[in-house]
Simulated scan of single mutants.
Amino acid sequence: MKRLMLDILACPIDKHYPLELFELQSKDEIEEGALYCQECGRYYPIIDGIPVMLPDELRERKRDTDFLSKWQGKLPDKVLRQGNPWHL
């Protein structure tokens, strides 16, 4: 994901802008990371350079839990333990 995308991305649920970026792996672009909405507490993983910004009902539990497990040492508690979607 190019850093310029941060200027246009907003939370798809409540339209909050800007989203907080937690960069986990990058080269020229952000390869792995998380976007966090401070308004509703939802996080959106960035996987293979693509921000996965789906509504709760369309998110895949396994993909999200795998992402959280992989990066649990680098993500803050507000994403790991308090982040939405709540059904994970």
Rank of each mutant, 00 (worst) to 15 (best):
M1Y: 03
M1V: 10
M1D: 05
K2N: 15
R3L: 10
L4A: 12
M5N: 10
L6F: 13
D7L: 09
I8Q: 11
I8K: 05
I8R: 05
A10T: 08
A10C: 15
C11G: 12
P12G: 02
P12T: 02
P12H: 01
I13N: 03
I13R: 02
D14F: 09
H16R: 06
Y17P: 00
Y17E: 14
P18Y: 08
P18Q: 03
P18V: 03
P18T: 03
P18R: 00
P18C: 05
L19C: 13
L19A: 12
L19S: 06
L21I: 04
E23N: 10
L24T: 02
L24S: 09
S26L: 05
S26G: 02
K27W: 01
D28W: 04
E29T: 10
E29R: 07
I30E: 03
I30C: 07
E31P: 00
E31D: 06
E31Y: 01
G33K: 01
G33R: 00
Y36F: 15
E39W: 08
C40L: 09
C40F: 05
C40W: 05
R42M: 07
Y43N: 10
Y44N: 03
P45W: 10
I46E: 05
I46P: 04
I47Q: 12
D48S: 14
G49E: 01
G49Q: 02
P51R: 09
P51F: 11
V52P: 02
V52I: 15
V52C: 09
M53K: 00
D56W: 04
D56Q: 07
D56V: 14
D56Y: 11
E57L: 13
E57Q: 04
R59N: 13
E60L: 13
R61F: 14
K62M: 12
D64Y: 06
D64R: 02
T65G: 00
D66Q: 14
D66S: 14
F67T: 06
F67Q: 04
F67R: 06
L68G: 05
L68Y: 01
S69T: 13
G73I: 08
K74C: 10
K74W: 07
P76T: 01
D77V: 13
K78Q: 03
R81N: 15
R81L: 15
Q82M: 13
Q82Y: 15
G83V: 11
N84C: 12
P85Y: 07
P85E: 06
H87I: 07
